[in-house]
Simulated scan of single mutants.
Amino acid sequence: MTFSHLLRALGSAGLIALAAGAVHAQAWPAKPVRLLVGSPPGGPSDITARTFADQLGQRIGQPVVVENRPGAGNNLAAGAAARAEPDGTTLVLSPDTVLTVNPLVYTSGDFNATRDLVNISVIASFSQMLVCNPSAGVRTVAELTAKARAGSMMYASGGPGVPGHLATEMLLEQTGVRMQHVPYRGPAPATQAVLAGEVACGFLATPTVLPHVKSGRLLALAVSSQAGSALAPDVPTLAKALNQPDLDVSFRLVLQAASGTPPAIVAEIEKQSAAIMKLPAVRDRLKNFDLTAVGSSSAQAQQVMNAEMKRWEPVVKRLGLKSE
């Protein structure tokens, strides 16, 4: 075969591949779509998933059914999506800790999010709020760190490696103080522990703790994101409290599918995601739960995840986090 014949053959093969990709995109989805969530109903991840699913279903003409599969730091939902047929009809919405922390913590299973899932889009970002029981006697981050230096203090989280645990450890790392971590099975029981005074403080989901802040049962010291909270604009950012303007301890909800999903289908879901997250009604609804709509590209999602993996790996290794 001459070089020109080879070029024509390669060109024909490329056209065939492009045509096949177009058919895949046009055919998607040929059946209802499942959207898995690794948290119980009612939380920020679940609310985001249901808001997104409602809009996606309207746009693609197929039902998008949300399934809650809580457990193992969101790994149960993510693992089920990874093992599904890679045809784009099983998706999962996960916090970025599934990618940045869990592969380092859950090392004994046959599932690894960085290997077995493709990142389609960062759907939204969120932060955590540092709250303390009034009996702790602290009203600012400076007072908290001073008291922690002077004696033993405990803080609550929704479990090892979850955003609230990581946010607190970032605070402790930045200030050089120590506090004893008390993990609970989710943010709700962790919040109850702080309310009861069993544990002094905790970085917890803003929508979960804000009603208790407004009632005076908890004191808000800071929010972890650089941008602050639209729901609590008077609460200082951790960056401001520590006088570190570049400090941003925010987290993301990432839409994923099984590795091997055809690129044309990934591109189609990515396009739909970007359009949905631009809708004012969607943005306003998420803002009510302290979430910021994003709708990134797949490439941007992967870039962000790579950076966050590098950021949290030394923290996880320092803490020696391992699954039980």
Results as ranks from 00 to 15, higher is better:
Met1Thr: 13
Leu6Phe: 14
Gly11Ile: 01
Leu15Trp: 07
Ala19Ile: 04
Gly21Pro: 03
Ala27Val: 01
Ala27Met: 04
Arg34Thr: 15
Leu36Ser: 05
Gly38Trp: 04
Pro41Cys: 04
Asp46Gln: 02
Asp46Ser: 13
Asp46Ala: 12
Ala49Cys: 10
Arg50Asp: 09
Arg69Ala: 09
Ala78Phe: 06
Ala81His: 01
Arg83Phe: 13
Arg83Met: 09
Asp87Leu: 08
Thr90His: 06
Leu91Thr: 12
Leu91Val: 10
Pro95Thr: 04
Leu99Phe: 05
Leu104Thr: 02
Leu104Ala: 08
Tyr106Trp: 13
Thr107Trp: 06
Ser108Asp: 14
Phe111Glu: 07
Asn112Thr: 07
Ile120Gln: 10
Val122Ala: 04
Val122His: 00
Val122Ser: 01
Ser127Lys: 08
Leu130Ile: 04
Val138Pro: 06
Thr140Lys: 11
Thr140Met: 12
Glu143Thr: 10
Leu144Arg: 10
Ala146Leu: 08
Ala148Arg: 05
Ser152Gln: 15
Met153Glu: 12
Tyr155Met: 03
Gly158Ile: 03
Pro163Gln: 06
Glu169Val: 02
Leu172Tyr: 10
Gly176Gln: 08
Val177Cys: 10
Gln180Ala: 14
His181Met: 07
Ala188Asp: 14
Thr191Met: 15
Gln192Tyr: 10
Ala200Pro: 00
Ala205Leu: 09
Thr206Leu: 12
Pro207Tyr: 07
Arg217Ile: 06
Ala222Ser: 15
Ala227Tyr: 06
Ser229Tyr: 09
Asn243Thr: 14
Asn243Phe: 07
Val249Asn: 05
Ser259Cys: 02
Pro263Asn: 11
Ala264Trp: 09
Gln272Tyr: 11
Ala274Asp: 11
Ala275Leu: 13
Ile276Ala: 06
Lys278Arg: 15
Pro280Val: 13
Val282Cys: 07
Arg285Gln: 14
Leu286Met: 12
Lys287Pro: 00
Asp290Thr: 00
Gln302Asp: 11
Glu308His: 00
Arg311Asp: 00
Trp312Pro: 00
Lys322Cys: 00
Glu324Cys: 01
